[in-house]
Amino acid sequence: MSLNLKPNIESPDDFYQLLTDAQRDLSDEDANDMNARLVLILANQIGSLNDLQEAIEIAK
């Protein structure tokens, strides 16, 4: 397994707040749309198909 599942996000509470703040005033529909865009942006950052496949498996 090459996917990093150890804590890696710097300042987890800040990140979590960024994420929830960004969607605080959104309808579920708009928030879901944003999440889909976010998945794609982050997937591009990861790049490796193996890593993405692992991530998808874990998320299922």
Partner: peptide, 20 residues
Amino acid sequence: KRFRKAVLDLANKTEFARPL
């Protein structure tokens, strides 16, 4: 449908989404 919408929205703004 949502992922496709996301791809098309992003493709307009960013290069990375275009190959999708």
